[in-house]
Design a protein around this nucleic acid. Structure first.
Lengths: 360, 360
DNA sequence: CTGAAAGCGCTTACAG
DNA sequence: CTGAAAGCGCTTACAG
């Protein structure tokens, strides 16, 4: 029932090849035949068969995008931005989430490769060497966010976590804070931190070293599980054990939970404790209070990513790009309150993982 | 370079047909040949060509999903749930967002149809008769969320907005509230409300009628723009104009903005004003305060949707399914405070769209 | 259970 | 610029 290219050719009284030429926007067709063909296409409601044309040619106009978790707005917003930027360049986007599963990660990449995507953007917070190798072996252009090493046909975008963390620490120091709590979260209790989180961790440590390692006290706590839950539990656990007047969170979602955990204990933000996030998810300015956070530009990110996937093969060198961060000041940070409940640990011994800045 | 089915056949010393049979899990192959074929596949790293096999056969194992806006966690979570449920049934999912654009909606559906999806789930809050017609004409099984009318091969899932709104209103009445503000939001100033929002609107009006139309005062305000921004502006605008002790929001995202708008004016939730949302996005329990909201089960939704897409063609009748809602009580609702600033409109004349319950 | 053959609907040289 | 032909890599009857 579905019309095929031959029906169009017959109706337009031209050859198959001519129809194909107008379909593929070749310049070798006369205006007259082009018009006739287009009229026929219109009339029949003809749509080219995706599978037939892709079988007959080499490559598609779709870009694969893989993220960790659509439930985290950071990834959803990143996927949106990539889709918009791809559309601007005439490409579609095919989106998959790994849900942090190695297996799903592999399947996702495998299927994108099977679909012969023109490029693939791996925007996960977890690193997966196996899929990375698959992608590189396939020769399909690839771009990674914080989780890749540059290689042929592949570029790695590195978030300037260090710069962002430095701005955060300087901001807190300027306000008068000296006792900082860093909250990160991992998937499961035994797991190493997610790769991109580790970079933020290291960035913060470096920032502390660079700023004022003598008088600054940095404690780190790592809780496993969903981000917001982890943030909530982290502060509640820290509350009895570690002294702090400011909390830096590895992501905004963790910060959301941390704020809740603090406030549910009657601790006011920022009067008693300051909180800083990382990612600048669009919702964060509606948090109570609006969240001070380290921003990553979705626009820059997607522009860099798509440009690198679409650059001519001749220029497809291994490359590492820096993605700038900036501190967005909102209302979750203020002067420290040394009388804050968070400054009175009940116990001396700490079960929380804790380290001095020098330990890095 | 890429091995093809003939290479596998040659290596395994069997015919093409046999390889195809084991690939497609036909039962007509002896264990011995199956084993040989699988070994050959393994050895060559053979992967069937997606385009060739789909060209040669009729239909794929992918289900199309279209949502309005990935930036709203409700849609992201729904997409996640659908993907998980589809995976359970051996299907993949192909996800697209319309960003509320009619054009993108059309393109999304067109492309899913071109990809010969086995079914298509339209989970948008906007209605699009054109794409609905396309889907129905294609004969591909379809399921709509609140935006469709049932038709052949198509089922419509209807959220029980009325039941949810009734529970919300009863809860507020029991607490002692009489002055309710309903906040909804539309895309642009001139637009009609989004279709699914209209249903919630009507559900609330019906609930008010059913409960206590005499003593209950319901005012509605509609602000255009992104959901959270709209919520924020709505309450700030209402504050001077309409008396209320409780706010019911058309979505959780609107509620997030509404809470912020209230709190930034020094109004406490729930001491001064109660707030109720709709959707129960996973984040809503981390709001400050945690949000009382009307929940829609993502699991029920995705189970119903996938089951209806995958039911045998013989049973593909027009159908409307009800999706239950439930009120989740958290900390954003409490007893009314008649001294609340929100009870003292400064002006008498209201510019906000406002109506008595009887007006419906 | 196997093997040879036709066909899925397009694209792409290639000779006119 | 056109038309006939080969080929993309699979699936599916069909005769053995």
């Amino acid at each position: 029932v579905r019309p095929k290219i031959q029906d169009v050719a017959a109706l337009a009284k031209v050859s198959l090849g001519s129809v194909s030429a107008v379909l593929n926007e070749k310049t070798t067709v006369s205006d007259a035949t082009r018009a006739r063909v287009q009229a026929a296409i219109e009339k029949l409601g003809y749509r080219p068969d995706l599978y037939a044309s892709n079988l007959a040619r080499r490559r598609t106009h779709v870009l694969g995008v893989v993220v960790s978790d659509l439930g985290n707005p950071f990834f959803a917003e990143t996927a949106q931005a990539l889709e918009a930027e791809a559309a601007r360049r005439g490409y579609r986007t095919s989106l998959t989430a790994t849900d942090f599963s190695e297996e799903q990660h592999r399947i996702a990449v495998q299927q994108l490769l099977d679909a012969r995507v023109a490029g693939i953007a791996i925007m996960t917070s977890e690193r997966n060497p196996a899929t990375q190798a698959m992608v590189l072996a396939s020769g399909v252009p690839a771009v990674f966010l914080d989780v890749g090493s540059p290689a042929e046909h592949s570029t790695n975008i590195r978030v300037d976590a260090r710069g962002g963390m430095r701005a955060a620490v300087q901001h807190l120091i300027a306000l008068g804070h000296r006792d900082l709590l860093f909250v990160r979260n991992s998937l499961h209790a035994e797991d190493a931190p997610l790769f991109s989180h580790r970079l933020r961790d290291q960035g913060l440590a470096a920032a502390v070293r660079a700023c004022d390692p003598q008088s600054l006290h940095l404690h780190t706590i790592d809780i496993a599980g969903p981000a917001a839950d982890a943030g909530e539990q982290a502060v509640q656990q820290a509350l009895g054990e570690l002294p702090f007047t400011a909390v830096i969170c590895v992501t905004d979602m963790v910060a959301l939970g941390a704020c809740r955990g603090l406030q549910s204990r009657g601790i006011r933000i920022p009067e008693d404790v300051s909180v800083i996030g990382f990612d600048n998810i669009s919702m964060s300015r509606f948090f109570s209070p609006p969240l001070t956070t380290v921003a990553i530009s979705r626009e820059d990110l997607s522009r860099m990513a798509i440009a690198s996937l679409l650059r001519p093969a001749a220029k497809a060198k291994a490359e590492t790009l820096r993605l700038a961060t900036s501190l967005v000041l909102r209302e979750s940070t203020g002067k420290p309150n040394r009388q804050s409940p968070s400054m009175r640990p009940r116990r001396v011994k700490s079960k929380a993982k804790s380290m001095s800045p020098r330990a890095f």
